[in-house]
């Protein structure tokens, strides 16, 4: 089971810089909201390439911030976009949204 937030690991990479971690989480949450809107719009248009791109970007940033579960969900969505098969995409996007919320709640503590 993927962790929601591998906080210690990230903090270690940031050499214990709590301020930087907070700043990064803030940037991430802001950016993710924009990306979710774009993913929703891309899904409505059936734009698989855009979904792949946004999901890829989200996946990478989430991994960098230790949002492991969210990164995995985003990877699944990216895969759907790459394959051009969007049948499962609405459910996957839903899962990404839920995972992002969980991350936000965990990170806020």
């Amino acid at each position: 089971m993927a962790e929601i937030f591998r906080r210690h690991e990230v903090l270690e990479r940031l050499e214990g810089d709590e301020d930087l971690l907070r700043e990064l989480v803030d940037i991430f949450l802001t950016q993710s909201r924009v990306q979710l809107e774009e993913l929703t719009a891309a899904l409505a248009l059936g734009d698989a390439a855009a979904i792949r791109h946004q999901a890829h970007s989200l996946k990478g940033a989430a991994a960098g911030l230790g949002a492991e579960a969210l990164s995995h969900r985003a990877a699944q969505l990216e895969q759907a976009g790459r394959e051009g098969d969007l049948t499962a995409a609405p459910a996957l996007l839903q899962a990404v949204q839920e995972e992002l919320q969980r991350f936000q709640q965990t990170a806020a503590v």
Partner: peptide
């Protein structure tokens, strides 16, 4: 990097 988190993260690491 297109993602602001990745940019800031690398920037912080490198500046350190």
């Amino acid at each position: 990097d297109d993602h602001p988190v990745a940019r800031r993260l690398l920037e912080a690491q490198l500046e350190r």
